[in-house]
Computed example of a mutant assay.
Amino acid sequence: MGIVFRDKLDGIGSEQLTGGFFDGWPNPPSPSTFLKLLEQSYAIELAIDEQTGNVVGFIQAISDGVLSAYVPLLEVLPEYKGQGIGSELTQRMLQRLQGLYMIDLLCDPDVQTFYEKQGMQRSTGMSIRHYSNQAGHIDNKQND
């Protein structure tokens, strides 16, 4: 038994998404909101602990499917770090997105070296962070 990688949510519910994601966030998304963000992503890659069935790492991309994609989140649970899971998730996602013109992500300077090792280049960018919305916003009108 070990870690398996999947690109679909089949059989994954919010109960498999608990355990420490969004570490350090003062207002993290609930497991149900976390599931929703994965469901609405253009592409996802999941790392699953075969023994527990729980998701221990993930990466998501949002995209127009034509020219561009943005990778907003890559996380591996703290107790699973150092096993190459983040690298494997990133490589799997970059492989899936390779037909697009641009793949962008924003990250803190302390992890830029990690992404350089994955074949990405340093760039500049701009952002806005509405920390009061950090737990997530679900537009119920989209579900009508």
Rank of each mutant, 00 (worst) to 15 (best):
L97M: 00
F21I: 00
E88L: 05
W25F: 15
E15C: 11
Q40D: 10
P28Y: 01
G65K: 07
Y70M: 04
Q60H: 09
P29M: 00
I62N: 04
N54K: 15
N27T: 11
L38P: 08
T33P: 11
Q60R: 15
I48E: 01
F21H: 03
P31W: 07
L97D: 01
G84M: 10
W25M: 03
E45C: 12
E15D: 13
L67V: 09
Q16V: 08
L38G: 12
S87R: 15
L97F: 03
R92N: 06
L35W: 12
Q91N: 13
S68M: 14
I44K: 07
T52Q: 06
R96F: 01
L38S: 12
E15L: 10
I85P: 10
T52F: 09
G24C: 06
S14G: 07
G19C: 05
G86F: 07
L46M: 09
L100Q: 09
L37N: 02
R92H: 07
D23N: 10
D49M: 02
G82H: 10
G19E: 02
I44F: 01
L74W: 10
G84C: 12
V71Q: 01
T18R: 15
T18N: 14
E88V: 05
L73T: 07
D64K: 13
K36R: 15
S87I: 04
N54Q: 11
V71S: 01
T90L: 00
L97Q: 05
I44R: 03
A47G: 10
L77F: 07
E75H: 11
L77R: 14
Y80H: 11
F22Q: 02
R92I: 00
G19L: 01
Q16H: 13
R92W: 07
Q98D: 05
L46P: 14
G53K: 08
L46C: 06
V56L: 03
L97T: 03
Q83M: 11
I48P: 08
P72T: 03
Y70L: 13
I85L: 09
A69C: 02
Q98Y: 02
S30M: 07
V55K: 07
L38T: 07
L100V: 08
E15T: 14
S14E: 14
P28S: 01
G57H: 05
Q60A: 14
L74C: 03
G65W: 03
D64N: 13
L94M: 11
L94P: 11
L89Q: 04
M93P: 08
L74S: 00
L35N: 08
E88M: 09
E15Y: 03
G19Q: 02
V66W: 07
I59R: 04
R92K: 15
S30L: 09
Y42S: 12
F21V: 00
